[in-house]
Amino acid sequence: MAPTAPPSSPSGTDLPRTLAASRGEVSVRDLYKSFTLNRAALAVLRGLNLSVAGGESLAIVGPSGCGKTTLLRVLAGLETPDRGSVLIDGRPVVGVGTERAIIYQEPRLLPWANVLANVAFGLEVRGTPRARARERARHYLRLVGLEAFETALPRQLSGGMAQRVGIARALTVQPEILLLDEPLAALDAMTKLTVQEELARIWAEEKVTMILVTHDLEEAIYLADRVLVLSRETELPPRLLDVPLPRPRDRNAPEFVALRRDLMRSFGLH
């Protein structure tokens, strides 16, 4: 694998952007995280620095096992780093927080609760009265186009529908930061394109910061302002790639295709 530097990549990864929104700002300082695997220490995150502006959309790509999920879980507060810190709007992250919501690779719906109850779950857990929580849940259910399925049970949904319910559930708590771990990886190609468009629209409407782990380079370029490329090799530092394309994006535009080719080359693919 020849590490060719992507063209528009800046030298460092610590590049604050001057965007209008100030809420939902994430900054990662000198982050270290290792695991013990077969009695050997495995350094997954090695001094990572990163700044994500409020309202920005950042994609994280990289080969399997390079630490994408680990980074996202640290940002979510589900994993504690060995060293370094994560700041959200200037405050250090300790555990999970109400300003962040996670969308997982699997929908993780409660199988005994109907669609509406699932979407309202996050709010109800936080103590919002049921009627108000369900009202807001209805709004987001409409946003993902599933208002007709309020009373359906999760097992009555297709994979794509279930994933959209998971997306609506995360949006219902109106987070500043959406953390997504390969949310569309299990969907078929057609559904994936539809939900990608939905995500792009929702991101623009809700003005949230979006941090999206994906192994789909096209998805990364379609949705992100910047792409963070992680690698498994210890000597290779993480790189950042700008995606200066107007929205809504056209996957077939020459600039889009060129960016995708650059990104693929940086993985040693053609």
């Binding site: 589900l78 999970v96 962040r100 919501a101 996670i102 997982y104 779950f121 996050g122 857990v125 708590v173």
Partner: peptide, 11 residues
Amino acid sequence: KLLEMARSFGA
């Protein structure tokens, strides 16, 4: 995974 989901919402 369901427990983790619920915890991440602050349960």
